[in-house]
Design a protein around this nucleic acid. Structure first.
Length: 570
RNA sequence: GCCCUCUUAGCUCAGCGGAUAGAGCGUCUGCCUCCGGAGCAGAAGGCCGCAGGUUCGAGUCCUGCAGAGGGCGCCA
């Protein structure tokens, strides 16, 4: 609709210029926007304010000239010049009714576009260390990354979801020693627990499982071989656990990328990917040697200081592995790469961007930094210490509040806002909880449609899509939809595509949560004012059923992009 | 010390350089003989952290200051 209004405005200006009423060397930007105040109409343009100077006329006079030419358009119900020179437009009922028809036909493709043009984008998110359960912060990244992926797919990108598994660092060895120590405790040994080992009870559980299955057979093995075995055993268990918890949350990754791959020699025995990446940077002139270490000149790309890639003792830094990882991503042919990182990694952004630029991919990496999650229960902070083992894990949270409510709460805030997550509120099925407010609107519509089917002698207990098909609403005449509540609902539906565009462009699903709440509100308002099923007015009933069904599809589509269910009954 | 983010109603937050700054919760008042009251309507509640600047126009852009959170490693 925005494009239609824009071209309408441009046409009006051109027309005025041709008629000699306006003197303009060039046609200005149409500057179309939606007024905040509905009293100012559906659309407004500030074009008269912007080009008054160039036209040598007062803005209001320019506005009058342009407005006069817009008034005749069939999609425009009224035009008025307001304030210093705003031109306010109100859409005709016909134009809005056309929108409803479009919404219903587009169905699950509503708001989709080809702005991605099939380009390949990778979204990497969560990437929790595989040494224990995920914390609730990971849940936010899971919800966010998955919804961003859905939005990008909806707008024409070819999307892959990836989880980077940090399975090569020293934390894996500590993990192994921790499990091993707990195992030895079960065997009755008085071996001391590693000083900085992982304290969580899950470590004991893993050790217990191994002990129950294999007995004391590892008691006398060398520490090295025991830890090697325990590391791989425990790692596999944790990885399976992560996959399952994420899957239950509705998030499935296309690729689980093992960091070990970066450290391994190539198939033909050549250098590993990290060495290859460092070599490439060296060839491009961005690497130097200093005090026995190998450095990346990241300051040449805007970083605060240069960074070490290979330490004096010959081992790689984490950063070196990350550079190799990002080189690997781009080598796989992605046009664009998106990383979703927690706020605790933001100091890392500059050097990563520098490395990607040095590899020749400047501008192809987006790093979304998300603020943390503060957990509450009835207003009281819940501690999340990883060390004490008292933390509420992501899995426990989902189990308690449900995947839909958890996802919705995680997505509701803009990324750079901390999320205050109150467990008690999120699980409450009441008006305090926006996810139920929205789902209720959907369920309520389904209920109306079932009722209509029942009165038409159709089976109301079928799936709602089938119920609607049986009602055969396609030929409904929408002309009766002209009351204020109906027009307001249709206006809200008209915003759908714009919201999707913005949310996808800004990688900001929270924009969609806000919209879907407003759409649900428009529906509830409509519902209280307009009785849908009225046996005395069959044409009006059919038109309203049509509009209500369009709303249902829009709600379902939006919730789907958020990864939240649209229940037909609650 | 340096860098990043945040600061808008009692609380939690929206707000693309435009008009009288919005929503939910909380508080107060109304609305079910009727399709789901998990709903709707109304009221009260604001020097948009402070001070400058740019602009016809600033909550929005720039600079400085203050407060809150996070980050700074040849750790991962």
């Amino acid at each position: 609709m925005r494009e239609a209004i824009e071209s309408m405005v441009i046409a009006a200006i051109e027309d005025a210029v041709d008629a000699g009423e306006l003197e303009l060397v060039e046609i200005p930007e149409p500057s179309v926007e939606r007024p905040r105040d509905p009293a100012h109409g559906d659309w407004a343009t500030t074009v008269a304010l912007k080009c008054a100077k160039a036209a040598g006329m007062p803005p209001r006079q320019v506005a009058q000239i342009v407005a006069g030419r817009l008034a005749d358009h069939p999609d425009i119900a009224s035009v008025e010049v307001a304030g210093p020179g705003f031109i306010n437009l109100r859409l005709s009922p016909t134009a809005l009714q056309r929108v409803v028809r479009h919404v219903r036909q587009a169905d699950s493709k509503l708001g989709s576009s080809d702005s991605g043009a099939g380009r390949r984008v990778q979204v990497e998110f969560v990437s929790a260390n595989p040494v224990g359960p995920m914390h609730v912060g990971h849940g936010r990244w899971a919800a966010l990354g998955d919804s961003v992926a859905r939005l990008l797919a909806h707008t024409g990108w070819s999307v892959e979801r990836e989880f980077y598994v940090n399975d090569a660092g020293v934390q894996m060895d500590l993990f192994a020693r921790s499990v091993s120590a707990r195992y030895l405790e079960f065997c009755g040994s008085d071996e001391p627990f590693p000083e900085d080992g992982y304290q969580g009870s899950y470590i004991k559980e893993i050790a217990r499982e191994i002990f129950d299955a294999e007995g004391t057979c590892w008691l006398d093995a060398s520490a090295a071989s025991r830890e090697e075995y325990f590391r791989e055993k425990a790692y596999a268990q944790v990885l399976e656990h992560l996959k399952r918890v994420l899957h239950d949350f509705g998030v499935d990754f296309d690729v689980w990328f093992s960091e070990r791959r970066l450290h391994a020699a190539s198939a033909d025995g050549g250098p590993c990917e990290i060495d290859t990446a460092i070599e490439e940077l060296r060839e491009r002139g961005h690497v130097y040697d200093h005090e026995g270490a190998v450095w990346f000149r990241s300051t040449a790309f805007g970083d605060d200081k240069d960074r070490v890639l290979v330490k004096a003792d010959g081992s790689y830094t984490y950063f070196a592995a990350d550079i190799a990882y990002h080189k690997d991503k781009f080598d796989r042919g992605f046009d664009r790469v998106i990383n979703i990182w927690g706020a605790d990694h933001h100091g890392y952004v500059a050097r990563m961007q520098a490395a990607v630029a040095a590899l020749g991919h400047e501008g192809q990496l987006d790093i979304v930094i998300g603020q943390l999650v503060n957990l509450f229960r009835n207003g009281e902070a819940v501690r999340m210490s990883k060390r004490t083992g008292e933390m509420v894990t992501f899995e426990e949270l989902v189990e308690e509040v449900g995947a839909d409510a958890a996802r919705y709460w995680f997505l509701r805030r803009s990324t750079d806002q901390q999320v205050d997550f109150d467990i008690a509120v999120a699980k409450e099925q009441s008006a305090d909880n926006p996810v139920y407010y929205v789902q209720y609107a959907h369920a309520r519509i389904c209920s109306i449609l079932r009722k209509a089917a029942e009165e038409a002698g159709e089976n109301p207990d079928a799936a709602v899509d089938d119920v609607v098909a049986a009602l055969a609403l396609d030929e409904a005449d929408l002309a009766p939809l002209d009351s204020e509540a109906e027009l307001a609902l249709m206006r809200e539906l008209d915003r759908f595509g714009e919201v999707i565009d913005v949310a996808a462009r800004e990688l900001a699903p929270y924009k969609l949560t806000r919209y879907v709440e407003e759409l649900a509100a428009s529906f509830h308002q409509f519902y209280t004012v307009c009785r849908v099923i009225d046996p005395d007015a069959p044409d009006l009933t059919r038109a309203r059923l049509f509009a209500v069904d369009a709303t249902r599809r829009a709600l379902r589509c939006a919730l789907g992009l958020l990864g939240v269910g649209a229940p037909e009954r609650m």
